[in-house]
């Protein structure tokens, strides 16, 4: 699903954020991306989103070489990749509902359809009572769930999360993790960037370790997957995606009709 070949990223200021990174994430996999601060985790996610372009090397997503993607095609790539940013990036002047609705409105869905799907997802994430609130009035955990809702509402093939449990109390962190695992079980490829060693330890999932821009370790899934339990004060309801219409996302096929640059 995601393939990197000898990827090198040098920022205009001369900083080499990534050098010679080769890795592969298969469709339906759940992968942790870890490493100390400044290791290049966010940079890697930004490259996948074409927020930045690689300096050297190739990146394939769903079999498409995003290096040769036309600017005009970038939006269509992004629609298939849900992202939860480290700082959430919610729109302050729009309500929770509208923040989540954006992901569907950009695709030109009818208002009715948007209301139905956003309503269901907010319901599942126990955010319905906050639908009319503005992000500034929400707690950190609530904001995080709104960001996740926006990333998931159009059922993307890939979900990228940058520090999804950062700044959250451990219970809330586990709720979020359970939600992400749920999403993954429905077929979505999930990449979680985190430097929370405890979290990685606990779930024993495949982990890619970056250090100063190079891939230093590819730790396979340990098999001893921690039982998925719900925190006592579960903020996230049982199976929030159960009401979602499409059970599984389109997978790699979703990227098939994104136009590449004409040679």
């Amino acid at each position: 699903m995601i393939q990197l070949y000898h990827v090198h990223k040098r920022y205009p200021n001369g900083c080499d954020a990534l050098s010679d990174v080769t890795m592969r994430v298969r469709e339906g996999e759940f992968v942790f991306l870890t490493g100390p601060s400044g290791a290049g985790k966010s940079t890697l996610l930004h490259l996948l989103l074409v927020m930045e372009r690689v300096t050297d090397g190739q990146i394939l997503i769903g079999g498409r070489n995003i290096h040769v993607l036309r600017d005009a095609s970038v939006p269509y790539l992004r629609r298939n990749i849900g992202v939860v940013f480290q700082d959430f990036r919610l729109i302050g002047r729009r309500t929770v509902f509208d923040n989540v609705a954006i992901a569907l409105e950009i695709m030109g869905l009818t208002r009715k359809e948007v209301e139905r799907r956003v309503g269901q997802l907010l319901d599942g994430l126990r955010l319905t009572h906050r639908a009319g609130a503005y992000p500034g009035d929400l707690s950190g955990g609530e904001q995080q769930r709104v960001a996740i809702a926006r990333a998931l509402v159009n059922e993307p093939a890939i979900l990228l999360c940058d520090e999804p449990t950062g700044n959250l109390d451990p219970d809330l962190g586990h709720d979020i993790m359970n939600l992400l695992l749920d999403v993954n079980r429905r077929g979505t490829t999930v990449v979680v960037a985190t430097h929370d060693a405890g979290l990685i330890e606990r779930y024993g999932l495949r982990t890619l370790v970056l250090a100063r821009g190079t891939l230093v370790e590819d730790r396979p899934r340990s098999g001893r997957l921690a039982p998925i339990e719900r925190g006592p004060a579960a903020a996230v309801g049982p199976d929030p995606l159960a009401t979602s219409t499409a059970a599984t996302s389109a997978g790699a096929a979703a990227f098939a009709d994104i136009a590449e640059e004409a040679p």
Binding site: P75, R79, R89, I91, I102, I106
Partner: peptide, 18 residues
Amino acid sequence: SRRDEIEILSLVGATPGF
């Protein structure tokens, strides 16, 4: 006054036209 909003829209896949 909507720079952040414009950037976010584009990050979640809005076309420039949108």
